[in-house]
Every structure is written in C-alpha cells, then in structure tokens.
Design a protein around this nucleic acid. Structure first.
Lengths: 340, 340
DNA sequence: TTGAAAGCGCTAACAG
DNA sequence: CTGTTAGCGCTTTCAA
C-alpha cells in the first residue's frame, strides 16, 4: 500500500508538498502534475483515518432513528424511512460525504452513552435524529449542549431553539377535518398510530379540534390506535365497525389506510360511497390500493433532502441554526368523493 | 477533550497500560479499575480514527446498492431495500459495527475509482453489494481480486467462486408456474421488471420454462416489462388487457401486482374469479391490497441478516468463502383460488 | 505487569 | 512555492 510518503519520495518532494498538490492547494502546477502522476503510478489511495485524525473531520454524517419496542415494526414494515434515507444520501453525495445509518430503541439503556460517544469520537461530523415519540429524551442533553451539529425531525417535546425540521402535522390533521366538513361527513372515525407517537398526537389534535369547531366529535368507540402497519389498520377498522358505522375514516398513515380499505372490501362496504377513507404521507402505497387513497402529502424524499441540506449548513458553518416548518397539502383521490 | 494520555496521566500509568486496561487485555485488576475510574472521571471517549489508523480496522461495514438510471425509482419507491437494511443493522449492532449506506448508478463513470478506493482507504472493513442488473461489472474486478471482504447478492453474471448469497428466483418463478398449472390456467400473462434486471431474468426463466413443460406459452402480447413500481404494474396490466385477456397474471414483485390489481378493479374484473394475480417478495404490501396477494416469500429481513452474518464471518476470518442459496416458498392468499 | 517508544498516514504551522 | 517538523490519538512491540 503506497502512502503519501511513497508518493512524495517518488515525486522527489516532501510529504507536505505532496499533500498540498493532491488537495488542490496552491503549489506550482508543474509539481502538482508530477505528484499526481506519481500518485497514479503507485495507485495511491489516501487512508481516511489519517486525514480524520489530523483534521478532526470524518466526512460522514449519521442518521439515527429512535424506535420503540412498542412500535418495532413501523420502521421495518414501512417504506417511510427509506424515502428519507434516499433523500439524505443523494444530498450528501453532492458534498462528498458518506452516510452512517443506525436504529436504536428508546428503551435502550445504552443511549446516554451512545450520544456522549457520538459527540466525541469524531466518527461523524453531524447527526440527523428522528425521535418519533413523546417520551423523555434526556439522553440527548449532552448532544444539545455540545455544539455538535445536529438536526431533529419533529422534536415536539423539546424547546423552541433546537435545530429542527417540523412537519406541520397539526395542519395536516386539520386539512382532513376540513375535507370531511366540506363533504358533510358527520360520523367520523380515526385510526391513529401509537398513542405516544408525535405524529399521532399532532395529527389527532389538528383533526379533532378542527372538527370540534363544527361540533363534530369522534366518539371513543370510533378511535383506534395501531402501530402504522397494514395489519393494525385492518384490525382498527374491524374493531371500529364492530360497534360503529362511520361515514368517513381518517387513518394516520397510508399503510393503515390500506389495511382499513381491505377490511372494508372484505365486508362488502363500498368506498367511498358508504365509507370514505383518508390516509397520510402520500407514499407509493396510496396509489397501490383500490380505490386510490386521498392522502396528505409533504414529499418525504424532499424532507430527507432538507434534513441533509440543513445539517450540511450547520457542519459547514453556513448557518448556525435550523428552524424549518413544512406545511402539508391534501391530495384528493377516489377514496373520497369529490362532492356530496 | 480528554485523550488516553490524560487518562494515563491521571491514573499514574503509561498510555500503554491505560490502553490495555480499557480494552480488557491482561493487566492487574487494581490498575484496571483505577484506569477505568479515571477515564470515567474525565469523560474519556476514544477517538475512532486513532484506533483505526493504528489497527487498520474501522468497525464499519458498507452496503452498496447499484442502481441504474433505467430503474431509478425502484430503490426509492419500494420498501424492499429497507427490509434488507434493517436486517443488516440489527446484526452488525451485535458485533459493535456500524453501517455505511450508499447507492450508486451503474452508469456512473466514477465506479472503478469508487471500488479502488473502498479497498484501500480503510474506511470500511467489508462491503455488501447488490448489483441488480445483468450488466458488465468490470469495475468490481479490483475488489474481487483484492482479498477485501465482500458479499454479493444475486451475482448472476459472475463466476461461481465469488462470495454470494443467491435467491433462487428461477425456482420462485417455477413455483408460480406450478401453481398456475395446478389451477389449470392456460392463458397466462407476465409483468416483469426491467429486462436486464437479474430478478426479471431468473423469475421469468423459471416461470416460462416450467409452463412450457405443460405446453403453456406466454404470448408476446401478454408480456410487459416495467420497473418494479406500482405505476408500472398498473400500466402493464392495462396494456396487456388491451389485446389479451389472461386467466392469471404473474407480477414479478408485489408492488407491480398491486398496480395490476388496481387496474383490474377499475375495469370491474373480478379477482381471482376472472383473473388471478400472483406477486413476488411477499412484502407488507401483499396484505395491503384486496384481495390479499398470493406471493413468493424468502423473508427479506432474514436475507439482510444473512448477508450481514456472512460478511461478518469473512471479516473475522471464521470463514473464507460464502456460497448460500435461498429457496423461496409460495404463500397462498386469496388473489388466487385454492382450487378450480 | 508495566513503561518507553515507535509508528499508523495524514495535515498544517512555520520557516526558508 | 516548498521542506522541515510537529503533532492528531491510538495500539503494540520490546524491555524491564
């Protein structure tokens, strides 16, 4: 394995000059091309850890999804995070950065250590965190106070001045409510994610309170909380139908909506004539079901890109803070009537 | 930032002893605990690149998906790879290893360099490659000859003795054919992925040749090649129906099957009474559609785990080669009749 | 069992 | 513009 030293020797220069030449710093162009050709001749490849050790930068960012044992399947059985990952990769490639991927359980007792290490071990230059739940994230304190570059997606429980990108799920829920109101659905049901999940909380809040403005209430028996998987959507619909017959159901993601739709089909209940269904996320599955799903869209891959760009700005000191709110929009498809 | 030197000084020992103590090597237990408590006191966190530089190991593995511009969406709009990633992460965590994730286009002219670097830059200890297409992978030669630990998923075009895990898609296609034969479907259609995609080639070959044994042939007009997305499945079904009315359709993944099913619903064609549909992969979407999808299963997350475990064995020198074939199985659901 | 010291490969300050 | 030199923080021989 040729090292920089070997290249320098072959080129008849010092390692310093060799380093400068290879890194596009200012040197005599003749020496530079000499060095470059020597490097090529020796098949020289710089060893990353040498540079990292010396500069303190790794050219790697990390994506961490914090999951919960209560919702173990939602990361796995959902392409949601895949979209985000793809967006992040695409952006970081542009900056010649690599992506580290990790999933940890909120319940893991190792998390405080995890973050203390991440901050100090110089293995990554920044981190994107997706916490998901409204739990206590005390283990993040060390990170937040360290000055280490980070961005958090949907950090409901944290105070205002942390770096975050927030999806306005409250608004998303309200959009669905407005749709139901407009279509004059009075008997309305809801299939949420885990009760403590941010998305459930916010989407539910926006939905319920907007409906309340029109004196529409969602009875207890018309509420079910699943885990964002198809299976739980099916089960939720089943359970609700057992005691209640809604005119419209709002499912808090498209997977559960798909499950609910299948349940309705199996019972011969027509969509949207007898029951309208609305999903959330507008992921590819929204067009995979019949009838196609009305959903709330905020462009997940773009979200991934924004997370990455934001983190990049922090890493490169272009900006010192990140505060972005993404507003969703309604995408009408045939699982809801257009008019009534 | 406290370094090992600081810890050693505080503990009144040499850095060598400090290192040994912290890494569980043999030292006097009294000194060890002394060192450990000093490390704790100083909030000592080892900097990864120091160790990497010194040992040559990074404790990181890489997953690389090689995509093609012809099939740009199939990574993004499919949760397939997500399952694999989750499986890999889970396993590597066990070994205290991190995961690097990357996607590259087969068409990228940078790939030869990419691999030459990966082999030498010591940023990762091994790599899992998913090539997908039956193209020329000459850029992998440097890797294959280097002794660098790697595992390739479905490496159809390579010679026998490379490290690989191969899904027996040929068998999978044959399983579907056998099902169709058993159910006495004579007019059969096929919706494949990209023509040059391994999965398309193998699944198609197994399917067509098994059918041929019973003198059942799939006419040209009953074949469509999409890109594994829902949209292309829909379009494929649409196109086929335009000139042909099959009794059964084999879609080469579940997403396309979902698209095909929606197309059939929109035309009021009953499933499975008028047309039976079969998918492949048995991913969560198989139970998201109505009727639920008969599919070919090989447990994708487990596949991810096997890829990781295999790579691990190579890295840790437990084994010197990997040759695994995974046989799929048929999962019957209501998109096919049980009997006829 | 421990310490001294060399070295992993690179960058960067400084001097020339 | 280039060379010398001193680290970056860790592991690991080799002696003691």
């Amino acid at each position: 394995m040729a090292t920089l030293k070997d290249v320098a020797k072959l080129a008849g220069v010092s390692t310093a000059t060799a380093s400068l030449s290879l890194n596009g710093k200012s040197v005599n162009e003749a020496t530079r091309s000499k060095v470059i050709s020597c490097a090529k001749e020796l098949n020289y490849v710089p060893i990353k850890s040498g540079r990292t050790l010396s500069t303190g930068r790794s050219n790697i960012v990390q994506l961490l999804i914090i999951n919960s044992v209560k919702c173990a399947d939602c990361v796995k059985e959902t392409s949601y995070y895949n979209h985000i990952i793809q967006g992040i990769v695409k952006v970081m490639q542009k900056y010649d950065y690599g992506l580290h991927f990790d999933v940890q359980m909120w319940e893991s007792s190792a998390l405080p250590e995890y973050f203390k290490h991440k901050i100090k071990d110089k293995s990554t230059d920044g981190i994107i965190i997706i916490p998901q739940f409204r739990y206590n994230y005390g283990f993040l304190d060390s990170l937040l106070q360290s000055g280490f570059p980070y961005v958090i997606l949907n950090p409901c429980v944290f105070d205002e001045n942390i770096n975050n990108i927030t999806l306005d799920h409250n608004r998303g829920g309200a959009l669905v409510a407005e749709l139901f109101i407009q279509l004059q659905y009075k008997k309305v049901a809801l299939i949420g994610g885990p009760v403590e999940h941010f998305d459930t909380i916010e989407r539910g809040r926006g939905f319920v309170s907007k409906l309340a403005e029109e004196s529409i209430f969602v009875p207890e028996q018309a509420r079910y909380y699943g885990d964002f998987t198809v299976k739980s959507g099916f089960k939720g619909m089943e359970k609700i139908l057992y005691t209640y017959r809604p005119e419209a159901v709002f499912c808090f993601n498209d997977y559960m909506a798909a499950g609910a739709i299948r349940c309705l089909h199996e019972r011969g209940i027509r969509i949207p004539d007898e029951i309208a269904v609305v999903g959330y996320d507008n992921i590819e599955i929204a067009t995979a079901v019949y009838p196609e799903l009305t959903s709330i869209d905020y462009n997940i891959e773009k979200l991934g890109k924004q997370l990455a760009e934001s983190l990049w700005k922090l890493i490169s000191n272009e900006e010192s803070q990140v505060h972005i709110v993404i507003r969703p929009r309604l995408v009408m498809r045939s699982s809801c009537k257009t008019e009534r």
